[in-house]
Design a protein around this nucleic acid. Structure first.
Lengths: 353, 353
DNA sequence: ATGAAAGCGCTAACAT
DNA sequence: ATGTTAGCGCTTTCAT
């Protein structure tokens, strides 16, 4: 690591005042009962305005915070939502997918807004099949959001029968039980291919490993559209992990991509790697090869050239997930949502026509 | 949003078996006392091996999970670490910085590994100055990690005097109290400039807003090195938010960058935007203009051309932060860590010489 | 090795 | 409007 180390005062004692730690302490100081303090701090209406303000002031002065564990235990409501990323088919056991991370960011916003806290876990499914139960049944959370089905679709589906407040980002399958929010991936694949064909591509490749069912659906849609248009398409299953991608893509490009003039990438990151690869081989984008990404992450607008891509509505998706979860927490029903992807044309493809 | 909606069964009732919900329930079924069940489930040694296994099996069969709220309340240890991102000077009130998000990913790994759960909050400092106290004093967490000091350095420093288990990612200042882990940003700026000068740059620009003290230090280091080398350097304070960056950078480039042949970017994302901009203006990188990024995010290797950048050790930093926090939780002292940045040479700069 | 009992700090009836 | 009381479900002495 080669760094330097500095002594810090952290860990040493300051002088502490005999602190107010519990409702009872505060109650004694205020000359009222714990019940009143509890109500006053919760801002309930049945407390005299004057005593309430006196107590709140007192609490502030003493820097008193009611213990949430106790509160949550008693009220049987945690105010916490668990957010889990299953790392089923990822090679590296690390949360690195920028799409997921971005979604987490938006979820954090939406949940905070709604008065919830967010407990983040990664799960390494290991066949014991209890990663979901463990978090769902811990009593620590009011509900669970799963980001990406990975290869755990069946397990999630099974869990959803006994655990209700559960919302998943991912792929919708006909007749499924669990509430899912996601993009119509097949449509996305289709749109990408149609755009490429309309702008002159005659030989296509789909770049990306299809272990995740979302990606598989993108490939399915792309293949259907290619077939319909009578254009050949080749599937090149390079892994999706950001940092493993470079060499793999180069090898694949060198050996399998001769003659290809249109690329559908499984994600913006794959597209970016392809862009770099082609650039280094002296191929011009979009003149020699056109590329369409998937996701429309903020960085898609910053590549050279800026990426034409299939947009997923991340912010809207996060909002929809939180709305649905809230409904399920309140024991109301919730419907799945499959959002339509949209084509964002930038400069990695040519004009249609 | 323009999506479709599917009915889902979620929210309807399955037939439930009269479930085992508490230790007492399990104790009754097992014909022992709650104390024994508690000990058996915790795997304590003082329980008869046979009864322990019987109870554990029983628990598994009934899908029983002890309520964590109750457990944590009683044992006065939450097993949860709060991770906060203060959004002090960010324009958009959204956690979007990919560096921070990546760091969160690594922290999730390290904390999970260490048996901790991670509670993620964003904080919108609003002058009431209690965003840190609120999470620290909530009784919900054993310790707090703050990601980025933003413009809240003083508040964090103040809080660290009364709240001990606190570790911050950011900039170290001489004599500070709070335990910080971070990169020597001035050195990073210096290294970037030295590399640019050594590879032939004669007129420099530093791209990035310096409200965050880390960025300010990068600029300071860069300026020092430029002065020492007798090379002019201009500061162009474009905002760092990913999506606001495009137009701003174009405007700045057009008006202020004539003659510049070396760019130090405040982050890889800024560098990427600059890359795109130059590309569109027909300038070649590195032939006409050389660029050095900062962070070495995984995507830095995927730009065209791949980015020469100043690497921050994110994974090692996450590990160091968790180690230090653990020490502080155990009431042991902890030292700050300032890691040395390293130059990663790729193809956005020319060979030195 | 196990049981009994006393809380952890708070909230929510139920009184008054 | 406020006080009193009974737990929330678990852990942990203290007995046995």
């Amino acid at each position: 690591m080669g760094g330097e180390t500095y002594k810090s005062m952290a860990g040493q004692k300051d002088n502490e005042v005999p602190a107010i730690r519990t409702l009872a302490d505060l109650a004694r100081v205020a000359g009222v009962s714990t019940g009143t303090v509890s109500r006053a701090l919760a801002g309930k209406s049945l407390v005299n305005v004057e005593t309430r303000e006196r107590i709140q002031t007192l609490a502030r002065e003493h820097g008193f915070r009611p213990n949430q564990m106790a509160s949550k235990l008693r009220s049987r409501r945690t105010g916490v939502i668990g957010v889990v990323i299953p790392l089923g088919h990822e090679l590296r056991q690390h949360i690195s997918d920028p799409f997921f991370l971005t979604l987490v960011g938006y979820l954090a916003d939406e949940l905070t807004e709604g008065g919830y806290d967010l407990m983040l876990s990664r799960a390494l499914p290991d066949g014991t099949s209890d990663w979901l139960d463990r978090i769902a049944g811990s009593g620590m959370v009011d509900g669970v959001i799963v980001i990406g089905q990975s290869d755990q679709y069946d397990l999630i589906e099974a869990a959803s029968h006994s655990y209700r407040p559960l919302v998943v980002w991912g792929q919708h399958r006909a007749g499924q039980n669990h509430c899912v929010v996601g993009t119509d991936n097949a449509a996305g694949g289709r749109i990408a291919v149609e755009h490429l064909v309309a702008s002159g591509a005659t030989s296509l490749a789909f770049l990306g490993d299809t272990t995740g069912i979302e990606i598989a659906d993108r490939l399915r849609g792309a293949t259907e559209a290619a077939t319909a248009a009578g254009v050949p398409i080749r599937h090149i299953p390079i892994p999706l992990a950001t940092d493993a991608m470079g060499p793999e893509i180069e090898a694949a490009m060198a050996s399998q991509c001769s003659g290809i003039n249109g690329v559908v990438a499984a994600s913006d990151l794959v597209a970016m790697a392809a862009l770099r690869c082609l650039h280094q081989k002296g191929m011009r984008v979009p003149e020699d090869v056109q590329i369409v990404g998937f996701d429309d992450l903020p960085l898609a607008a910053q590549t050279s050239p800026p990426l034409t891509t299939i947009r997923q509505e991340i912010a809207a998706g996060a909002r929809a997930m939180v709305e649905r979860l809230r409904a399920l927490v309140e024991k109301e029903p919730a419907t799945s949502l499959v959002m339509a992807p949209t084509l964002v044309v930038r400069q990695s493809t040519r004009a249609e026509g």
